[in-house]
Each structure stands twice: as C-alpha cells, then as structure tokens.
Nucleic acid binder design. Structure first.
Lengths: 221, 221
DNA sequence: GAGCGCATCAGGGTGACCCCTGAAAGGGGG
DNA sequence: CCCCCTTTCAGGGGTCACCCTGATGCGCTC
C-alpha cells in the first residue's frame, strides 16, 4: 500500500497519442504523478524499474493486429518479478483477456474505456491496483457470467457432436466431415440434425441457416 | 481565415472522456483555446452559436450503434448555416463517411486517430479546417483510390446484378430476391449465375460458397 | 436384465442452389 | 439496319443440405 501523502508514480503505455494525453491529464487532475508516457508496452518495460513506478496504465490495443500488447507487457512484468499495479484499458469487453489479466494475480485491473465517464473512475482504478487491489469492469463480469450461461446449449452437445460442429464452423460439407472423421454420410447428417436441434436452429426456412448460424455463433463469442 | 494572433476557439464532442481530455490537452498545447468539451454532437450543436466557435472536433463514434453521430452533427451545422471548421476523428478509414464529410463542403476534415502520433498533426488539422481548408487522412484517400480499383469486378456488374448482389449479401434466398424485386425465380438464378461468373466465384465445389464468399467480400471492405 | 444415451448407418423425400442451353424483348451504337 | 448488351424467363439436370422414420451395437445405470 502506497503512502497516501506521497503522489503515486505512474507510467502510461498507449499507441494513441490522444489517449495518452487524456489519461495523463485525468490522472494528474487526480493527484497522480505521470512519470512516463510511451507508445508501446515494451518501452514501458524498459523503464519500469528505474522509474520506481507504483502503477502502469496499458492500453490493450485490440484493432487489428498487435492483439495483446498490453497483456504481454503485463505478463512480462510479472515474469520479471515486478509487483506494481497494472491497469489495462480496452475498448471491448473480452472475457478471454479479462481471465488472462486476473490470472496475473492481484494488483491488476481491466477497465473499459467507455466506462471512464468521469475522471474519478480512472483515478480510483489506478489507486486500487497500485495498492494491490483488483479492478474488473462490471460489463466484463457480466460477459463472463453470461458466457457460462450461453455455453449451456453447447455443453449439451456430445463429444462427437462438438467435433462435427467444429468442422461445420470451418465450412466443411457433410461429405467432407464424413471423410475427415471416417464416417458415413448418413451418420454425419444425423449428428448435424441433432446439433441443429440442440442449438434451436431447426426451424429456419432459409437454406443457408447453417453457415449463417455458425458464423453468428463464432462472431458472438 | 482567422487572425493568427488571436487563439482559435474550438469545441470538442466525444463520448469518451479520456479522448476529450487528450484532444483538449493537445490543442491547448498548440495555442488553441478549447471553450467547450461535451459528450455528444447534439450538445455541441446547442452551444455552437453562442460560443462563437472557430472550429469543432467531433469523434465519429463507430462502435457499434450510434453510427454516425459526428457526421450528423456536421451536416446539421451546415444545414443551420454554420461555416465553422469541422474536424471529424475516427478509428477506421471508412471511405463512405469520408465522402459524406467532403460532401459537406470546405472547412471540413476527416482524420484517423492513429494518424495523430504527434500533437502538431492535430493542431494543424484544426487550424486548416478553421481557415476553410480541407483535411483528408492519406490512408482514407488510399482507401478511396484502392476502392475504385477493387471495385473493378463489382463495377463490371450491371445495375440489376448489383441490386441482386445486395440482397444476396443480406442473406436473401433466390426466391426471396425474386419476390422482393418482382422477378421470376429463373431470372434471379440467371443474374446470380452471371454475378458469380463475373466475381470469379463460379468454381467452388462447396455448396455454401455464396454466403461465404459474399460475407468475405463484405468483411474485406 | 431392462432401460437409456450415444454413435453408427439406411431409405426415402423435399427444397434450394447451381449449371447449361435457349429465347424473346428493348436500347444503343456502328 | 444489324449487332451487342441488358433484362427477362423456360426447361432440364445435378448436387447438396435437411427432414423423417427407423435400425443396430455398445456401454452404463438402476
């Protein structure tokens, strides 16, 4: 826990200049000292020791390549033995990354940028992770809970059906699935039918329901 | 053209607090006065006259609903007779919106956030639109040029074929397209066949080629 | 052992998409 | 005027996804 009379020393990594400046301004307005503001997680890694940081704010650059620069930086910090608070900012609520963040232990946080509608939200989040606490965006938690509920229909599939569904999602035809899994065409059709039934997709008049539905499923997760 | 000895008066509209603060800080660092900073385009519209703004910076909130708040605000300003400079910021290079922006006349600009890697970029862009000039992000221009080139296969389609393709992309069945366009099923099939030929999609053994291909096309633009 | 879920197939049927040939009407240009 | 393009449609054939009703064997449980 940091001494509340001494301002926190924080570093920012974000490839967007405008966001760096915005984060910096908000934090400084909350009595936090921004001692580093760089464009990549690596740059922050290089200076995290010398600068004696209390916390780091990382932007999880989602779009479109460089998927997880922020998380990689977080994990490398932990691998180096650093225990400073790390707050990751993101545009979207992606449960997978939230789990990775939480897996890095205490003193970490995952916050959506939209959530920061007033300065105190960000300031408090940084203070929390700096003092070893955890911050998880409510929407992300919601997503995680909803995920396990949405997984229900998928968990009702048998093992064989899941393997068929996997090939369906990859665009395989029934015949292709049959060849790949060394099955008869009729067997595959049976599996497909029960899959569609269990996923409540059996009553679609359009023909392409299968591809569309599977793509939708994949797009939503 | 504004008097260079008097600081420009600028308003900002952006739903993301952090970006508002960042834009504000960068502009102020460039000798520009930020006299309004609000969360929606509408709020800025309400005060644009009283505050005697030289320019407005609008964030084109793309994700996921509220598609074009920024552009709507721009068009309303023009409709109200306002001729102040308007700079739209966006995450992505979307030529459609860039065209709409340019359609609003001079004193407008379309800039990608990523492009703002140093403060001067933004400051100069604001100064340009405030003085009646136009700003278009190089990447957007590139997209526009590339579009017309990539449109080649699409431009080879006839008008009727394009309307059919549009419905195809929306998941319509051939029968649905026929009903919608008041055509015979066979006519639609003929159009579909020539579309697939012209788009070099005729040799796909898999059945779902159509939806997949169209979705791919849509995803790539 | 009887029941149950699972995986494996079969036969038979419907509908959609897709391919090919062909054709008729209208418009525009050489 | 004739040719080309566009748009409209027909007939006929093939493939595939999907639906239904079964049937067999296997393992597990009560």
């Amino acid at each position: 826990m940091a001494d509340p009379t001494v301002p926190l020393r924080v570093g920012i990594a974000d490839d967007a200049l405008l966001l760096r400046e915005g984060i910096s301004k908000v934090l400084e307005g909350g009595g936090i000292e921004v001692v580093a503001s760089v464009g990549t997680g690596q740059e922050l890694l290089d200076v995290v020791d010398e600068l004696d940081l209390d916390a780091a704010v990382l932007d999880i650059r989602m779009p479109p390549s460089f998927r997880d620069e922020g998380i990689v930086a977080l994990e490398q910090m932990r691998a180096n033995g650093s225990t400073i608070g790390v707050l990751l900012l993101s545009m979207y609520a992606t449960p997978e990354y939230a789990l990775r963040v939480m897996g890095a232990g205490s003193g970490t946080g995952y916050l959506l940028k939209e959530r920061v509608s007033e300065p105190q939200t960000l300031v408090r989040a940084v203070e929390t992770v700096a003092s070893g606490g955890s911050v998880v965006d409510p929407e992300v938690v919601e997503q995680l809970v909803h995920r396990t509920r949405a997984d229900d229909p998928l968990s009702r599939l048998t093992e064989r059906e899941r393997s068929v569904l996997e090939l369906m999602a990859q665009g395989y035809s029934n015949g292709g699935i049959a060849q790949t899994l060394f099955l008869g065409l009729k067997t595959v059709e049976t599996h497909v039918r029960s899959i569609l039934q269990k996923l409540d997709l059996e009553e679609s008049p359009e023909h392409h329901r299968r591809v569309l539905a599977v793509l939708t499923l994949l797009g939503e997760r």
